[in-house]
Computed example of a mutant assay.
Amino acid sequence: MTATFNRQDSEPVQDPPLHKSWHALTPLWQGGENSVQQGLPHAQLAPAWQILLLGDGSPTRHLQLLTTEPTEVDVIDMSLIGMDSDGAPDLIQAVPGPRLRRQVWLRKASGQRLAYATSWWEASHVDEYLQNRSLPIWASLARLRTELYRDVQGLYYGHSAALETAFEQKGPFWGRHYLFWHHGKPLTLIYEVFSPYLTKYLGSMGG
Rank of each mutant, 00 (worst) to 15 (best):
H125Q: 15
H62M: 15
L80N: 14
Q103C: 11
R61G: 09
D127A: 13
V73I: 14
A94G: 06
I76T: 13
L100C: 14
D77P: 02
H125I: 12
R61P: 01
Q64Y: 03
H125K: 13
L91F: 06
R102M: 04
A123F: 02
K108D: 04
A94Y: 09
E72I: 13
L91C: 05
S79D: 05
A115T: 03
R107L: 06
Q103Y: 05
S79C: 08
T68A: 12
L63P: 01
R113F: 02
E128K: 11
W121S: 01
D90E: 12
M78V: 14
N132F: 08
W120T: 02
I81L: 05
M78L: 15
L65P: 02
R99I: 03
D84Q: 09
P89G: 04
D84T: 06
R107V: 01
L106W: 04
A117S: 14
A109F: 06
Q64S: 15
S110F: 06
I81W: 00
I81Q: 00
Q64A: 13
G82K: 08
K108W: 05
E69A: 09
V126S: 04
D74P: 05
V95G: 01
Q93P: 00
T118D: 02
L91N: 05
A94N: 11
S134L: 09
T60G: 15
N132W: 06
S79I: 00
V75D: 08
L66W: 06
S85Q: 11
D90F: 11
R102N: 03
V95N: 03
L63F: 15
T71E: 01
Q131W: 14
P98Y: 07
L65A: 15
G87W: 05
P89T: 05
S58R: 11
P98L: 08
M78N: 10
G111P: 07
L65V: 11
K108H: 07
I81E: 00
T118Q: 02
E122R: 07
Y129R: 04
A109P: 00
D74W: 14
L114E: 00
R133C: 10
S85M: 07
D90I: 12
L91R: 07
D56N: 11
L130E: 05
L114I: 05
M78Q: 13
S134C: 08
